[in-house]
Design a protein around this nucleic acid. Structure first.
Lengths: 205, 205
DNA sequence: CCGACCTTACCGTCCGAACAGACGGGTACC
DNA sequence: GGTACCCGTCTGTTCGGACGGTAAGGTCGG
């Protein structure tokens, strides 16, 4: 288990700093995943990151700061990956919704990291999730407004997408890769061809 | 804050016991909801339940025991309410799925209590969720097997249902009552006449 | 007088946080 | 080029307090 032991000594000051910071963040997510939220302590994270407790506290002065750093990092990654995925989908509308669904086709590292970070934040202090909530609201806005999708279908896409990684987070009878793909296809088709979907709910156009 | 203060003195022994136990459980959920998971301590719960710390520990010998008791209570209630709701729906098949969706049309106390209990369990020790996971698996089995529903549609119903209360739990841009009702109607209709849903074009009835 | 139920008092541990420096590269000045 | 100094980075230690859990005793119905 010497994976996090050696620390580079001879590096420019700034680079060493940013590396240490990232190592701490990764160590924190590893601790949560492997040992649970209740084991997310300064000592555990510092030890796993190969840094002293004081060194840890230099980068994150409090537990709240650690959670915030975790959320910023992981939400940024997720937002970026969603964007490139949406750019790669060539449809007239609903690209972001399709990307949102496609992203959870199977559990990815970014999705898992995000999930456990949100869990940790909720466990430590609910208010830490405020900026995360704002990001989800932006995603929701983009799903229906920016993407020109029917409001209900846009919401359905997000509920299914979020539902899947949340089910994974708690392990509440998570579906197999095959099953989730079928569900995602079902919803994706519903969105792509939404003239038919409008008839199904019987709402006026 | 005298809401939990007075405690009945002159009652049969067993009744007093079960009352205290229930008061403790309710106090625990209240603490989680109002002060967060990190505030779920012996002292806080005992104080809110109007019982001494020792008295609390008589009923729940450890924090794990408290979480387990919380989960059992709340999952039992939820399971019962789902059953009566499903019995009240008169369709040839998919009654449980429709009930599962109808249940999250707006956030209920039972759903909220369950959510926060699961959150607390995940925060304290992941293994405590094992029996809860089994219950969710039973629900999933009933959704497709016992209910004679298409597997994919059954899974969709559960993902949407679970997705909604999980979104509520973390407050991740939760939809309004109107919006969620529309989504639930959309999925419900999809399920009700799934012959039409399969080719997405046929209009209902 | 017994057992269920509850109380007060207490203990050891762990954890978040503060702190006083050490190290070492960059920079300025001679 | 040497030397002195500064500051970003990091170390090891210490501390106060909260928290989970124990112990021992008391009350009351049966």
């Amino acid at each position: 288990m010497g994976e996090a032991g050696e620390r580079p000594k001879n590096l420019p000051v700034q680079e060493r700093a940013v590396l240490t910071r990232d190592r701490i963040l990764q160590a924190a997510t590893e601790v949560i995943i492997q040992e649970g939220v209740s084991s997310l302590t300064f000592d555990k994270v510092a030890a796993r990151a190969g840094v002293s407790k004081g060194g840890f506290l230099y980068h994150f002065g409090s537990k709240d700061a650690l959670i915030v750093g975790l959320l910023n990092q992981v939400m940024g990654v997720l937002d970026g990956e969603l964007n490139v995925l949406a750019d790669g989908i060539d449809v007239t509308q609903g690209a972001f919704a399709l990307a949102y669904l496609d992203y959870v086709r199977e559990p990815t590292k970014a999705a898992t990291d995000t999930a456990v970070s949100i869990l940790a934040a909720a466990a430590v202090d609910d208010d830490l999730l405020d900026s995360t909530r704002a990001t989800f609201q932006r995603w929701q806005d983009r799903l229906c407004q920016d993407d020109g999708l029917d409001e209900t279908e846009a919401l359905l896409a997000r509920i299914v997408g979020d539902g899947l990684w949340l089910i994974d987070l708690f392990g509440l009878a998570p579906p197999t890769a095959e099953e989730r793909s079928k569900v995602i296809d079902l919803v994706s088709n519903l969105i792509s061809d939404h003239g038919a979907a409008r008839d199904l709910i019987g709402s006026a156009e």
